[in-house]
Amino acid sequence: MKNGHITQKIGFSALFGCMLITMFFLGAIIYFTVVRGIGAISWGFLTQVPRSGMTEGGVAPAIVGTLYLTAGSILFALPLGLACAIYLCEYSPRGFFVNIIRMSINNLAGVPSVVFGLFGLAVFVKFMKFGISILSGSLTLGILVLPIIISATQEALMAVPHSLREASLALGASKWETIRKIVLPSALPGILTGVILSIGRVAGETAPILFTAATFYSRRYPDSVFSEVMALPYHIYALMTEGTHPEKQTAIAYGCALILMVLVLGVSAIAVYIRQRQRIQNA
């Protein structure tokens, strides 16, 4: 009896220790990014174009580029993913074929992101002749997050109680009316959460845009979807590996990292808030 008690205490302490280690790394990442990045942040840094071979000026084109790429990829992936999930969840007959499709989608989520980058280069940049552009980058990033959007939507759709579908059908609503007016509104918070997680993912990805959209140095803002753009994650990579003034560039890179982290964490915070609010509504 007493021994069991001690074992339990040791067990709890071990779990608590692991939790502390995790928290330490999370805290350390945030701490270092903030401490090393905050010095670079200024109004000019956020709003000006780079100057003097990337060693001075701001990173505004990279912020704008990241926003464009994120918006573009979601615009592409959301309708496609939503439609795909609705089909798989509500319309497709259960069976071998659909199981294969589901498995493929899950596998797509496990493909390394650099592979998506090569795919984007081959298909969008070369074959479809979109060039290195916002369009190619957005499509590549969109494909990268399709599985996230599809599985989040599927889960949200499956969480809608069957009894609500029956209630709607029993009133003489068609299947499509039931999905559009009852099932989708109920699933919306779950779908939104998936979208927001996707935003966080695409904003931070480097490899997929490496060959499809990003450029190291641009003094201009993109003027069409066929322009190449700067983007924060790639800019960090470039600052650390290229150029002639590493000491100045490193400071700028940490500044970029801080901006990127604030953007992504901010977006995740919105996701948590939406989920929380939904939980309160359902309670």
Binding site: P161, S163, L164, E166, A167, S168, L169, A170, L171, G172, A173, S174, K181, I182, P185, S186, Q281, N282
Partner: peptide, 27 residues
């Protein structure tokens, strides 16, 4: 759909839509 409009159903567990009382009936 036509049959279900003419033959209504009330289920074992109350299953109102997560909408207002008014919207539940107006639906």
């Amino acid at each position: 759909v036509e049959i279900r409009r003419r033959v209504g159903m009330v289920f074992q567990k109350p299953n109102p839509f997560p909408k207002s009382i008014f919207e539940n009936i107006a639906y």
